[in-house]
Design a protein around this nucleic acid. Structure first.
Lengths: 247, 247
DNA sequence: TGACACTTGTGACGCTCCGTCAATAATTGA
DNA sequence: TCAATTATTGACGGAGCGTCACAAGTGTCA
Protein backbone atom coordinates (compact mmCIF):
# COMPACT_ATOMS: atom_id res chain seq x y z
CA UNK A 1 0.00 0.00 0.00
CA UNK A 2 2.74 2.38 0.94
CA UNK A 3 4.24 0.83 -2.16
CA UNK A 4 1.30 1.66 -4.40
CA UNK A 5 0.92 5.05 -2.85
CA UNK A 6 4.43 6.03 -3.61
CA UNK A 7 4.17 4.66 -7.10
CA UNK A 8 1.15 6.84 -7.70
CA UNK A 9 2.86 9.79 -6.15
CA UNK A 10 5.91 9.20 -8.28
CA UNK A 11 3.69 9.03 -11.29
CA UNK A 12 2.21 12.40 -10.42
CA UNK A 13 5.59 13.93 -9.82
CA UNK A 14 6.88 12.67 -13.13
CA UNK A 15 3.89 14.13 -14.84
CA UNK A 16 4.67 17.51 -13.35
CA UNK A 17 8.06 17.38 -15.01
CA UNK A 18 6.43 16.30 -18.22
CA UNK A 19 4.05 19.22 -18.13
CA UNK A 20 6.87 21.65 -17.57
CA UNK A 21 8.93 20.18 -20.36
CA UNK A 22 6.02 20.34 -22.77
CA UNK A 23 5.32 23.91 -21.77
CA UNK A 24 8.95 24.86 -22.24
CA UNK A 25 9.02 23.34 -25.70
CA UNK A 26 5.85 25.10 -26.73
CA UNK A 27 7.13 28.38 -25.41
CA UNK A 28 10.40 28.04 -27.27
CA UNK A 29 8.79 26.96 -30.50
CA UNK A 30 5.66 29.02 -30.72
CA UNK A 31 6.14 31.84 -28.28
CA UNK A 32 4.00 32.98 -25.42
CA UNK A 33 0.82 33.18 -27.43
CA UNK A 34 1.33 29.63 -28.64
CA UNK A 35 1.35 28.31 -25.11
CA UNK A 36 -2.11 27.23 -24.03
CA UNK A 37 -3.41 24.99 -21.29
CA UNK A 38 -5.61 23.15 -23.76
CA UNK A 39 -2.65 22.53 -26.02
CA UNK A 40 -0.57 21.14 -23.16
CA UNK A 41 -3.39 18.85 -22.09
CA UNK A 42 -3.88 17.61 -25.61
CA UNK A 43 -0.18 17.07 -26.23
CA UNK A 44 0.12 14.95 -23.09
CA UNK A 45 -3.23 13.23 -23.64
CA UNK A 46 -4.56 14.27 -20.29
CA UNK A 47 -7.64 16.34 -19.68
CA UNK A 48 -7.33 19.97 -18.81
CA UNK A 49 -8.55 19.35 -15.28
CA UNK A 50 -5.55 17.15 -14.59
CA UNK A 51 -3.18 19.86 -15.67
CA UNK A 52 -5.00 22.22 -13.34
CA UNK A 53 -4.42 19.79 -10.49
CA UNK A 54 -0.75 20.52 -10.87
CA UNK A 55 -0.80 24.20 -11.65
CA UNK A 56 -3.61 26.46 -10.64
CA UNK A 57 -3.15 28.75 -13.60
CA UNK A 58 -1.05 29.41 -16.63
CA UNK A 59 1.16 31.82 -14.74
CA UNK A 60 2.09 29.12 -12.25
CA UNK A 61 3.56 27.11 -15.07
CA UNK A 62 5.51 30.06 -16.30
CA UNK A 63 6.91 30.90 -12.90
CA UNK A 64 7.73 27.25 -12.28
CA UNK A 65 9.73 27.26 -15.49
CA UNK A 66 11.49 30.38 -14.33
CA UNK A 67 12.33 28.83 -10.96
CA UNK A 68 13.69 25.70 -12.61
CA UNK A 69 15.93 27.70 -14.89
CA UNK A 70 17.02 30.23 -12.31
CA UNK A 71 18.02 27.51 -9.94
CA UNK A 72 20.31 26.11 -12.64
CA UNK A 73 21.73 29.58 -12.97
CA UNK A 74 22.52 29.93 -9.32
CA UNK A 75 24.21 26.51 -9.35
CA UNK A 76 26.37 27.71 -12.19
CA UNK A 77 27.21 30.84 -10.23
CA UNK A 78 28.25 28.81 -7.20
CA UNK A 79 30.40 26.54 -9.30
CA UNK A 80 32.16 29.49 -10.88
CA UNK A 81 32.62 31.45 -7.66
CA UNK A 82 34.18 28.47 -5.91
CA UNK A 83 37.18 28.49 -8.17
CA UNK A 84 40.09 29.91 -6.18
CA UNK A 85 42.00 32.96 -7.32
CA UNK A 86 42.10 36.72 -7.16
CA UNK A 87 38.80 38.43 -6.58
CA UNK A 88 38.47 39.90 -10.04
CA UNK A 89 39.34 36.60 -11.64
CA UNK A 90 36.62 34.94 -9.65
CA UNK A 91 34.17 37.57 -10.78
CA UNK A 92 35.20 36.85 -14.34
CA UNK A 93 34.24 33.24 -13.66
CA UNK A 94 30.78 34.34 -12.64
CA UNK A 95 30.64 36.43 -15.78
CA UNK A 96 31.36 33.31 -17.78
CA UNK A 97 28.54 31.54 -15.97
CA UNK A 98 26.14 34.40 -16.67
CA UNK A 99 26.97 34.47 -20.35
CA UNK A 100 26.84 30.72 -20.70
CA UNK A 101 23.48 30.74 -18.99
CA UNK A 102 21.85 33.06 -21.49
CA UNK A 103 23.21 31.01 -24.32
CA UNK A 104 21.94 27.77 -22.89
CA UNK A 105 18.55 29.12 -21.88
CA UNK A 106 17.73 31.99 -24.18
CA UNK A 107 14.03 31.48 -23.56
CA UNK A 108 14.47 32.42 -19.94
CA UNK A 109 14.53 36.11 -20.71
CA UNK A 110 11.24 35.74 -22.48
CA UNK A 111 9.72 34.03 -19.48
CA UNK A 112 11.09 36.48 -16.98
CA UNK A 113 9.89 39.47 -18.93
CA UNK A 114 6.44 38.04 -19.40
CA UNK A 115 6.14 37.22 -15.74
CA UNK A 116 7.06 40.72 -14.71
CA UNK A 117 5.33 42.65 -17.43
CA UNK A 118 1.88 41.21 -17.79
CA UNK A 119 0.67 41.82 -14.25
CA UNK A 120 0.62 38.08 -13.78
CA UNK A 121 2.91 38.33 -10.80
CA UNK A 122 0.02 38.75 -8.39
CA UNK A 123 -1.73 35.62 -9.58
CA UNK A 124 1.16 33.37 -8.72
CA UNK A 125 1.61 31.59 -5.41
CA UNK A 126 3.75 33.15 -2.74
CA UNK A 127 5.72 29.91 -2.52
CA UNK A 128 6.97 30.04 -6.08
CA UNK A 129 7.46 33.77 -5.99
CA UNK A 130 9.73 33.53 -3.00
CA UNK A 131 11.57 30.60 -4.57
CA UNK A 132 12.33 32.81 -7.54
CA UNK A 133 13.37 35.69 -5.33
CA UNK A 134 15.55 33.23 -3.43
CA UNK A 135 17.50 32.29 -6.56
CA UNK A 136 17.88 35.95 -7.41
CA UNK A 137 19.13 36.80 -3.95
CA UNK A 138 21.50 33.86 -4.01
CA UNK A 139 23.04 34.97 -7.29
CA UNK A 140 23.43 38.51 -6.05
CA UNK A 141 24.86 37.29 -2.78
CA UNK A 142 27.57 35.37 -4.57
CA UNK A 143 28.62 38.45 -6.51
CA UNK A 144 28.46 40.65 -3.42
CA UNK A 145 30.61 38.08 -1.63
CA UNK A 146 33.29 38.31 -4.27
CA UNK A 147 33.22 42.08 -4.07
CA UNK A 148 33.62 41.96 -0.28
CA UNK A 149 36.43 39.49 -0.75
CA UNK A 150 38.11 41.89 -3.14
CA UNK A 151 37.79 44.69 -0.61
CA UNK A 152 39.25 42.62 2.21
CA UNK A 153 42.10 41.52 -0.04
CA UNK A 154 42.71 45.20 -0.83
CA UNK A 155 42.28 44.59 -4.53
CA UNK A 156 39.38 47.01 -4.58
CA UNK A 157 38.22 50.00 -2.57
CA UNK A 158 34.71 51.30 -2.87
CA UNK A 159 34.31 55.06 -2.68
CA UNK A 160 32.46 56.70 0.19
CA UNK A 161 28.77 56.03 0.26
CA UNK A 162 28.87 53.20 -2.28
CA UNK A 163 27.88 49.77 -1.04
CA UNK A 164 28.91 46.47 -2.65
CA UNK A 165 25.27 46.12 -3.61
CA UNK A 166 25.44 49.22 -5.76
CA UNK A 167 28.19 47.63 -7.78
CA UNK A 168 26.25 44.37 -7.93
CA UNK A 169 23.38 46.39 -9.30
CA UNK A 170 25.68 47.79 -11.97
CA UNK A 171 26.79 44.36 -13.06
CA UNK A 172 23.28 43.05 -12.93
CA UNK A 173 21.79 45.86 -15.01
CA UNK A 174 24.61 45.73 -17.50
CA UNK A 175 24.26 42.01 -18.15
CA UNK A 176 20.51 41.83 -17.84
CA UNK A 177 20.06 44.80 -20.14
CA UNK A 178 22.51 43.55 -22.70
CA UNK A 179 21.13 40.04 -22.81
CA UNK A 180 17.56 41.25 -22.94
CA UNK A 181 18.44 43.50 -25.86
CA UNK A 182 20.31 40.71 -27.60
CA UNK A 183 17.44 38.30 -27.10
CA UNK A 184 14.73 40.62 -28.37
CA UNK A 185 16.39 42.47 -31.22
CA UNK A 186 16.65 40.19 -34.16
CA UNK A 187 19.65 42.05 -35.44
CA UNK A 188 22.11 44.32 -33.74
CA UNK A 189 24.41 44.43 -36.71
CA UNK A 190 22.48 47.12 -38.49
CA UNK A 191 23.23 49.28 -35.48
CA UNK A 192 26.93 48.67 -35.84
CA UNK A 193 27.23 46.15 -33.03
CA UNK A 194 28.79 43.09 -34.57
CA UNK A 195 29.70 41.05 -31.55
CA UNK A 196 27.46 42.00 -28.65
CA UNK A 197 28.69 39.30 -26.27
CA UNK A 198 32.26 40.48 -26.53
CA UNK A 199 31.06 44.05 -26.17
CA UNK A 200 29.39 43.14 -22.88
CA UNK A 201 32.56 41.54 -21.53
CA UNK A 202 34.45 44.57 -22.64
CA UNK A 203 32.14 47.15 -21.15
CA UNK A 204 31.98 45.38 -17.84
CA UNK A 205 35.75 45.24 -17.67
CA UNK A 206 35.82 48.97 -18.29
CA UNK A 207 33.40 49.56 -15.46
CA UNK A 208 35.46 47.44 -13.08
CA UNK A 209 38.56 49.33 -14.17
CA UNK A 210 36.70 52.52 -13.38
CA UNK A 211 36.08 51.19 -9.90
CA UNK A 212 39.82 50.62 -9.59
CA UNK A 213 39.54 46.87 -9.20
CA UNK A 214 43.02 45.41 -9.61
CA UNK A 215 44.52 43.92 -11.61
CA UNK A 216 43.18 46.27 -14.28
CA UNK A 217 42.12 44.93 -17.62
CA UNK A 218 45.20 46.66 -19.04
CA UNK A 219 47.39 44.51 -16.83
CA UNK A 220 45.59 41.23 -17.18
CA UNK A 221 44.00 39.51 -20.14
CA UNK A 222 40.48 38.97 -18.82
CA UNK A 223 39.12 38.37 -22.28
CA UNK A 224 41.54 35.48 -22.65
CA UNK A 225 40.69 34.29 -19.16
CA UNK A 226 37.07 34.13 -20.18
CA UNK A 227 37.61 31.46 -22.77
CA UNK A 228 39.96 29.61 -20.49
CA UNK A 229 37.44 29.57 -17.63
CA UNK A 230 34.72 28.45 -19.96
CA UNK A 231 36.66 25.28 -20.73
CA UNK A 232 37.89 24.82 -17.22
CA UNK A 233 34.70 25.30 -15.24
CA UNK A 234 32.02 24.34 -17.73
CA UNK A 235 33.51 21.77 -20.08
CA UNK A 236 30.19 19.98 -20.51
CA UNK A 237 28.01 22.97 -21.00
CA UNK A 238 30.49 24.55 -23.32
CA UNK A 239 30.04 21.76 -25.83
CA UNK A 240 26.37 22.54 -26.08
CA UNK A 241 26.93 26.01 -27.39
CA UNK A 242 29.84 25.28 -29.70
CA UNK A 243 29.42 27.06 -32.94
CA UNK A 244 26.21 28.74 -31.88
CA UNK A 245 28.03 31.95 -31.35
CA UNK A 246 25.67 34.36 -32.96
CA UNK A 247 22.72 33.36 -30.80
CA UNK B 1 -17.50 69.79 -49.46
CA UNK B 2 -13.75 69.84 -49.01
CA UNK B 3 -14.80 71.63 -45.86
CA UNK B 4 -17.01 68.83 -44.60
CA UNK B 5 -14.53 66.23 -45.66
CA UNK B 6 -11.71 67.74 -43.67
CA UNK B 7 -13.94 68.16 -40.66
CA UNK B 8 -14.72 64.47 -40.80
CA UNK B 9 -11.11 63.62 -41.28
CA UNK B 10 -10.14 65.81 -38.36
CA UNK B 11 -12.76 64.06 -36.30
CA UNK B 12 -11.25 60.72 -37.18
CA UNK B 13 -7.77 61.88 -36.39
CA UNK B 14 -8.84 63.22 -33.05
CA UNK B 15 -10.46 59.94 -32.27
CA UNK B 16 -7.24 58.14 -32.96
CA UNK B 17 -5.58 60.21 -30.28
CA UNK B 18 -8.49 59.54 -27.96
CA UNK B 19 -8.16 55.82 -28.47
CA UNK B 20 -4.46 55.93 -27.72
CA UNK B 21 -4.99 58.03 -24.63
CA UNK B 22 -7.66 55.68 -23.33
CA UNK B 23 -5.47 52.70 -24.03
CA UNK B 24 -2.56 54.30 -22.24
CA UNK B 25 -4.68 55.03 -19.20
CA UNK B 26 -6.00 51.49 -19.08
CA UNK B 27 -2.56 50.08 -19.44
CA UNK B 28 -1.20 52.22 -16.65
CA UNK B 29 -4.07 51.54 -14.32
CA UNK B 30 -4.92 47.94 -14.92
CA UNK B 31 -1.92 46.48 -16.66
CA UNK B 32 -1.64 44.62 -19.90
CA UNK B 33 -4.34 42.11 -19.09
CA UNK B 34 -6.74 44.91 -18.22
CA UNK B 35 -6.41 46.39 -21.68
CA UNK B 36 -9.10 45.08 -24.01
CA UNK B 37 -10.52 46.26 -27.29
CA UNK B 38 -14.05 45.86 -25.97
CA UNK B 39 -13.20 47.97 -22.95
CA UNK B 40 -11.74 50.73 -25.09
CA UNK B 41 -14.79 50.72 -27.34
CA UNK B 42 -17.12 50.87 -24.38
CA UNK B 43 -15.17 53.61 -22.64
CA UNK B 44 -15.29 55.79 -25.74
CA UNK B 45 -18.87 54.82 -26.57
CA UNK B 46 -17.96 53.62 -30.02
CA UNK B 47 -18.51 50.17 -31.37
CA UNK B 48 -15.65 47.75 -31.60
CA UNK B 49 -15.67 47.90 -35.37
CA UNK B 50 -14.84 51.58 -35.30
CA UNK B 51 -11.81 50.94 -33.13
CA UNK B 52 -10.72 48.31 -35.59
CA UNK B 53 -10.98 50.89 -38.38
CA UNK B 54 -8.13 52.68 -36.68
CA UNK B 55 -6.01 49.80 -35.49
CA UNK B 56 -6.11 46.41 -37.08
CA UNK B 57 -5.28 44.62 -33.86
CA UNK B 58 -4.43 45.11 -30.24
CA UNK B 59 -0.72 45.01 -30.95
CA UNK B 60 -1.01 47.93 -33.31
CA UNK B 61 -2.30 50.03 -30.45
CA UNK B 62 0.55 48.94 -28.25
CA UNK B 63 3.19 49.68 -30.83
CA UNK B 64 1.55 53.01 -31.63
CA UNK B 65 1.83 53.90 -27.95
CA UNK B 66 5.46 52.90 -28.02
CA UNK B 67 6.17 55.02 -31.07
CA UNK B 68 4.46 58.03 -29.50
CA UNK B 69 6.51 57.71 -26.35
CA UNK B 70 9.79 56.88 -28.04
CA UNK B 71 9.48 59.86 -30.27
CA UNK B 72 9.18 62.05 -27.17
CA UNK B 73 12.30 60.36 -25.92
CA UNK B 74 14.32 61.11 -28.98
CA UNK B 75 13.20 64.74 -28.84
CA UNK B 76 14.47 64.89 -25.28
CA UNK B 77 17.76 63.39 -26.40
CA UNK B 78 18.16 65.97 -29.14
CA UNK B 79 17.40 68.78 -26.75
CA UNK B 80 19.97 67.53 -24.28
CA UNK B 81 22.66 66.82 -26.85
CA UNK B 82 22.37 70.30 -28.33
CA UNK B 83 23.62 71.94 -25.19
CA UNK B 84 27.19 73.07 -25.86
CA UNK B 85 30.08 71.89 -23.73
CA UNK B 86 32.67 69.20 -23.35
CA UNK B 87 31.76 65.84 -24.78
CA UNK B 88 31.32 64.06 -21.49
CA UNK B 89 29.19 66.87 -20.14
CA UNK B 90 26.96 66.60 -23.15
CA UNK B 91 26.64 62.87 -22.59
CA UNK B 92 25.65 63.61 -19.04
CA UNK B 93 22.87 65.75 -20.47
CA UNK B 94 21.62 62.81 -22.48
CA UNK B 95 21.82 60.74 -19.31
CA UNK B 96 19.56 63.26 -17.63
CA UNK B 97 17.14 62.96 -20.51
CA UNK B 98 17.16 59.18 -20.30
CA UNK B 99 16.50 59.17 -16.59
CA UNK B 100 13.84 61.83 -16.81
CA UNK B 101 12.17 59.85 -19.54
CA UNK B 102 11.74 56.72 -17.48
CA UNK B 103 10.35 58.76 -14.64
CA UNK B 104 7.86 60.53 -16.84
CA UNK B 105 6.80 57.43 -18.76
CA UNK B 106 7.34 54.46 -16.50
CA UNK B 107 4.73 52.48 -18.41
CA UNK B 108 6.89 52.57 -21.51
CA UNK B 109 9.09 49.78 -20.28
CA UNK B 110 6.04 47.63 -19.80
CA UNK B 111 4.90 48.32 -23.34
CA UNK B 112 8.30 47.74 -24.88
CA UNK B 113 8.79 44.48 -23.08
CA UNK B 114 5.36 43.20 -24.00
CA UNK B 115 5.85 44.12 -27.63
CA UNK B 116 9.11 42.25 -27.81
CA UNK B 117 8.25 39.31 -25.63
CA UNK B 118 4.84 38.07 -26.64
CA UNK B 119 5.62 37.27 -30.25
CA UNK B 120 3.31 40.09 -31.21
CA UNK B 121 6.03 41.81 -33.15
CA UNK B 122 5.18 39.93 -36.32
CA UNK B 123 1.54 40.95 -36.23
CA UNK B 124 2.31 44.64 -36.33
CA UNK B 125 2.59 46.69 -39.50
CA UNK B 126 5.98 47.28 -41.04
CA UNK B 127 5.28 51.00 -41.03
CA UNK B 128 4.99 51.26 -37.28
CA UNK B 129 7.80 48.82 -36.68
CA UNK B 130 10.21 50.86 -38.73
CA UNK B 131 8.99 54.03 -37.04
CA UNK B 132 9.93 52.52 -33.71
CA UNK B 133 13.28 51.36 -35.02
CA UNK B 134 13.80 54.85 -36.38
CA UNK B 135 13.42 56.42 -32.94
CA UNK B 136 15.79 53.85 -31.53
CA UNK B 137 18.38 54.49 -34.21
CA UNK B 138 18.01 58.23 -33.74
CA UNK B 139 18.66 57.97 -30.00
CA UNK B 140 21.67 55.77 -30.55
CA UNK B 141 22.96 58.06 -33.27
CA UNK B 142 22.89 61.01 -30.92
CA UNK B 143 24.96 59.17 -28.36
CA UNK B 144 27.36 57.84 -30.98
CA UNK B 145 27.73 61.39 -32.25
CA UNK B 146 28.77 62.63 -28.83
CA UNK B 147 31.28 59.81 -28.54
CA UNK B 148 32.76 60.67 -31.93
CA UNK B 149 32.87 64.29 -30.87
CA UNK B 150 34.76 63.27 -27.74
CA UNK B 151 37.25 61.35 -29.84
CA UNK B 152 37.84 64.21 -32.23
CA UNK B 153 38.26 66.61 -29.30
CA UNK B 154 40.82 64.18 -27.86
CA UNK B 155 38.86 63.82 -24.65
CA UNK B 156 38.48 60.12 -25.29
CA UNK B 157 40.35 57.40 -27.16
CA UNK B 158 38.75 54.11 -27.89
CA UNK B 159 41.01 51.07 -27.68
CA UNK B 160 41.82 49.04 -30.77
CA UNK B 161 38.93 47.13 -32.20
CA UNK B 162 36.29 48.95 -30.20
CA UNK B 163 33.79 51.01 -32.14
CA UNK B 164 31.78 53.91 -30.75
CA UNK B 165 28.75 51.66 -31.16
CA UNK B 166 30.16 49.18 -28.68
CA UNK B 167 30.27 51.91 -26.06
CA UNK B 168 26.79 53.03 -27.04
CA UNK B 169 25.71 49.46 -26.48
CA UNK B 170 27.25 49.55 -23.02
CA UNK B 171 25.38 52.70 -22.08
CA UNK B 172 22.20 51.39 -23.59
CA UNK B 173 22.33 48.04 -21.79
CA UNK B 174 23.28 49.64 -18.53
CA UNK B 175 20.38 52.10 -18.56
CA UNK B 176 17.85 49.80 -20.16
CA UNK B 177 18.70 47.00 -17.77
CA UNK B 178 18.64 49.19 -14.72
CA UNK B 179 15.38 50.88 -15.56
CA UNK B 180 13.74 47.62 -16.50
CA UNK B 181 14.79 46.14 -13.18
CA UNK B 182 13.62 49.20 -11.30
CA UNK B 183 10.29 49.22 -13.08
CA UNK B 184 9.54 45.55 -12.52
CA UNK B 185 10.89 44.85 -9.05
CA UNK B 186 8.53 46.28 -6.52
CA UNK B 187 11.36 46.72 -4.08
CA UNK B 188 15.10 46.85 -4.49
CA UNK B 189 15.68 47.87 -0.91
CA UNK B 190 15.55 44.35 0.45
CA UNK B 191 18.51 43.65 -1.83
CA UNK B 192 20.47 46.50 -0.28
CA UNK B 193 19.97 48.94 -3.14
CA UNK B 194 18.49 52.01 -1.59
CA UNK B 195 18.79 54.54 -4.34
CA UNK B 196 18.91 52.77 -7.69
CA UNK B 197 18.79 55.91 -9.83
CA UNK B 198 21.87 57.34 -8.20
CA UNK B 199 23.52 53.94 -8.48
CA UNK B 200 22.94 53.98 -12.25
CA UNK B 201 24.48 57.42 -12.62
CA UNK B 202 27.36 56.27 -10.52
CA UNK B 203 28.00 53.04 -12.36
CA UNK B 204 27.88 54.69 -15.74
CA UNK B 205 30.38 57.28 -14.61
CA UNK B 206 32.66 54.48 -13.53
CA UNK B 207 32.39 52.84 -16.88
CA UNK B 208 33.21 56.08 -18.68
CA UNK B 209 36.16 56.56 -16.34
CA UNK B 210 37.26 53.07 -17.29
CA UNK B 211 37.17 54.15 -20.92
CA UNK B 212 39.42 57.05 -19.99
CA UNK B 213 36.89 59.70 -20.95
CA UNK B 214 38.12 63.00 -19.56
CA UNK B 215 37.47 64.83 -17.39
CA UNK B 216 37.20 61.85 -15.05
CA UNK B 217 34.46 61.70 -12.49
CA UNK B 218 37.15 62.24 -9.87
CA UNK B 219 37.98 65.58 -11.47
CA UNK B 220 34.49 66.78 -12.20
CA UNK B 221 31.28 66.63 -10.25
CA UNK B 222 29.03 64.89 -12.75
CA UNK B 223 26.51 63.98 -10.09
CA UNK B 224 26.13 67.65 -9.31
CA UNK B 225 25.98 68.46 -13.00
CA UNK B 226 23.09 66.06 -13.34
CA UNK B 227 20.82 68.04 -11.09
CA UNK B 228 21.97 71.27 -12.66
CA UNK B 229 21.23 70.04 -16.16
CA UNK B 230 17.88 68.79 -15.10
CA UNK B 231 16.83 72.30 -14.13
CA UNK B 232 18.56 73.93 -17.04
CA UNK B 233 17.43 71.74 -19.92
CA UNK B 234 14.14 70.37 -18.66
CA UNK B 235 12.65 72.94 -16.29
CA UNK B 236 9.10 72.06 -17.28
CA UNK B 237 9.42 68.31 -17.18
CA UNK B 238 11.33 68.45 -13.95
CA UNK B 239 8.34 69.89 -12.13
CA UNK B 240 6.29 66.88 -13.05
CA UNK B 241 8.50 64.47 -11.19
CA UNK B 242 9.15 66.61 -8.13
CA UNK B 243 8.86 64.57 -5.03
CA UNK B 244 8.25 61.36 -6.87
CA UNK B 245 11.80 60.30 -6.31
CA UNK B 246 11.29 56.74 -5.31
CA UNK B 247 9.36 55.83 -8.45
C1' DT C 1 -34.98 68.15 -53.48
C1' DG C 2 -34.38 63.44 -54.09
C1' DA C 3 -31.95 59.47 -55.95
C1' DC C 4 -27.64 57.29 -56.02
C1' DA C 5 -22.81 56.12 -54.81
C1' DC C 6 -19.63 55.98 -51.35
C1' DT C 7 -17.84 56.23 -46.68
C1' DT C 8 -18.24 55.25 -41.89
C1' DG C 9 -20.23 52.88 -37.90
C1' DT C 10 -22.45 48.88 -35.68
C1' DG C 11 -22.89 44.80 -32.89
C1' DA C 12 -24.07 39.97 -33.35
C1' DC C 13 -21.33 36.10 -34.48
C1' DG C 14 -17.67 32.53 -34.61
C1' DC C 15 -13.66 31.31 -32.56
C1' DT C 16 -10.12 30.38 -29.03
C1' DC C 17 -8.72 30.10 -24.59
C1' DC C 18 -9.11 30.21 -19.50
C1' DG C 19 -10.59 28.15 -15.28
C1' DT C 20 -14.57 25.49 -12.83
C1' DC C 21 -17.12 21.71 -11.18
C1' DA C 22 -20.38 17.97 -11.05
C1' DA C 23 -20.04 13.50 -12.62
C1' DT C 24 -17.25 9.43 -13.33
C1' DA C 25 -13.38 6.30 -12.74
C1' DA C 26 -9.62 4.53 -10.13
C1' DT C 27 -7.41 3.48 -5.92
C1' DT C 28 -7.15 2.48 -1.13
C1' DG C 29 -8.27 0.39 3.32
C1' DA C 30 -10.86 -2.74 6.12
C1' DT D 1 -16.11 -7.28 -1.40
C1' DC D 2 -17.55 -2.66 -0.75
C1' DA D 3 -17.44 1.92 1.06
C1' DA D 4 -14.48 5.96 1.35
C1' DT D 5 -11.18 8.58 -0.57
C1' DT D 6 -8.71 10.39 -4.30
C1' DA D 7 -7.82 11.32 -9.18
C1' DT D 8 -9.58 12.33 -13.78
C1' DT D 9 -12.61 13.99 -17.09
C1' DG D 10 -14.73 17.15 -20.37
C1' DA D 11 -18.86 19.98 -20.85
C1' DC D 12 -19.72 24.56 -19.55
C1' DG D 13 -19.75 29.68 -18.59
C1' DG D 14 -17.36 33.61 -19.42
C1' DA D 15 -14.16 36.87 -21.62
C1' DG D 16 -11.78 38.64 -25.30
C1' DC D 17 -10.34 38.94 -30.29
C1' DG D 18 -11.35 39.98 -34.90
C1' DT D 19 -14.99 39.68 -38.84
C1' DC D 20 -18.64 40.94 -41.71
C1' DA D 21 -23.25 41.79 -43.41
C1' DC D 22 -26.02 45.38 -42.66
C1' DA D 23 -27.36 50.20 -41.15
C1' DA D 24 -26.54 55.02 -40.87
C1' DG D 25 -24.42 58.95 -42.49
C1' DT D 26 -22.27 61.95 -46.08
C1' DG D 27 -21.47 63.94 -50.50
C1' DT D 28 -22.78 64.47 -55.55
C1' DC D 29 -25.44 65.77 -59.23
C1' DA D 30 -29.54 66.04 -62.09
Amino acid sequence: MAQTLTRKQREIQDREQLILQTARDMLTERGYLGLSMDAIAEALEYSKGTIYNHFSCKEEILIALAVETMSKRSEMFVKAANRPGQSRERLAGVGVAAELFVRLYPEYFQVEQIIHSTSMWEKTSEKRRSALRGCETRCMGIVAGIIRDGISRRELELPEGASPEDLVFGLWSQTFGAYAIIATSDTLEHLGINDPFTAVRYNINRMLDGYGWRPFSTEFDYLGLFDQLLEEIFPEEQKLIRGSFAL
